[in-house]
Computed example of a mutant assay.
Amino acid sequence: MDFRLSDEQRMLVETARKVGERFGPDYWRELDARKAYPAKAWQAICEAGLCGIALPEEHGGSGLGMLEMALAIEALTAAGAGATLAQMFMLNPIFGGVSIARCGTEAQQRALLPGLVGGEVTFCMALTEPDAGTNSLEIRSFARRDGEGWRLSGRKVWITAVPQARKMLVVARTRRIEEVTRKTEGISLFLIDVEREGLSHTPIDKLGTNTLPSSSIFFDDVHIRPDELLGEEHQGWPGLLEVLNTERIVTTAGLIGTVDLALRLAVDYGADRKVFGGRPIGSYQGIQFPLAQAHAISECARLMNYKAATLCDLGQPYGAEANRAKLLAAQAAALATERAMQTMGGMGYAKEFHAERLWRDARLFRFAPVSEEMVLNFIAQHDLGMPRSY
């Protein structure tokens, strides 16, 4: 195994770092306070070519891979944004890019990928339902045939950045769950306009990730055109798995960047803050050990994520590695952000020191996009050969 980055990869990381530093912690703190969408930061990311890293060159992308995307996200999030910026990559190059590039027709790719790469077209994905969270196969939103198209009815919840999206990747049943032999059958993917008759959405008030709103969505007999089907009707499950597994890689990269940022804030504060005889608090093992533990866990997550991304780029199975990496990264980010706050004492609770925002945002990823418990179920069943427990 070769752990060295190529010259191209190092240049990519440096580009991402410079873009990220243009939008440092103060920028994200201000947006968090206003619950404002990071449009300027995302446009700068697109203009630097970072949105299209893993998308085809013939449609404006760089033709690189998920490994390069993970490297760029680490650098961007570590520069000041924290985990929430990784969600922008989930929304666009994953929910939009992966679904179109791997499932879409040539006409769909020509029509949408250049706008995605340039930042003009933004995306969201409607998957989760009130009674179908991690258990995605239990979705009930149904698209019934209507001439050459479909009519969609149902409800989705916890859908990110709906008001800012132009296109929505909708996961719906086209055969009812009672009518299929296997639950993976009868699922279809559609890419529709967010602004459409019968589609409405309402905001969800929440703890963190305030720069990207979350919404409940209602589909009331929404018309879907024939050219809005991605892939084959009833056969959307394999394409959805590609979206979900690459989403794990992006999530992990953002959490690793969060750990890097939180530890830097904590170490810098620990070097400056002096108590009890003038010694910096960073010289005490009670401060050092938890931060060192978070760093060790994060480095393991980083390497596992690189393995997952490399396997993905080679066309080999990578779901297990992506899940393991996400599990470790979420735990490392939780520890790093909480201990950064503890290192700062009362000031860790103050918004001007940034740690509390990183903590609020990172907490989401202990249960999203897949919960720790479900990852452990997966490991027990598929890696250890234990009985299915749920």
Rank of each mutant, 00 (worst) to 15 (best):
K167G: 07
R175F: 07
N210D: 05
R151P: 06
S216K: 10
G208W: 00
T251M: 10
V194H: 08
T184E: 14
T251W: 05
E178Y: 04
D221I: 11
L199F: 12
D221S: 06
L169I: 00
P163A: 07
W150H: 15
K183C: 15
L207W: 15
R175Y: 12
V194A: 15
R155Y: 06
P163D: 08
R176G: 06
R145P: 05
L199A: 14
K183T: 10
R248T: 10
P226G: 15
W150T: 12
K167Y: 04
T160V: 11
P238N: 15
W158C: 11
V243A: 02
I187V: 14
A172M: 03
V250A: 04
T251R: 12
R248I: 01
E228L: 05
R225Y: 07
R145E: 10
I224H: 13
S200E: 02
K156V: 12
T251Y: 06
I159P: 01
T251E: 04
E179N: 14
K156G: 05
H201T: 07
T209Y: 07
F190R: 00
L191I: 03
T184I: 06
A161E: 11
K183I: 14
I177M: 05
G231N: 03
V157L: 03
R225Q: 15
E179Y: 08
L191F: 11
W150K: 11
D220T: 03
V243W: 00
F218A: 15
R151F: 07
L241D: 08
W158D: 14
P213K: 13
Q235D: 11
L199E: 05
G236N: 08
R151T: 10
K206A: 01
L152N: 00
M168L: 13
G147V: 03
I159T: 12
G236M: 09
G149S: 03
T174Y: 01
E148R: 13
R155E: 06
T174W: 00
P226L: 10
I224R: 11
L230Q: 04
R151C: 11
I217M: 14
G186P: 02
T184M: 12
L189C: 05
G236P: 08
G239F: 13
T181D: 15
V222K: 01
T209E: 08
E242K: 10
L230I: 09
S188F: 03
G154V: 06
L191E: 00
T202V: 06
F218M: 13
K206R: 09
E148A: 15
K156C: 07
R176N: 01
S200Q: 04
P203W: 08
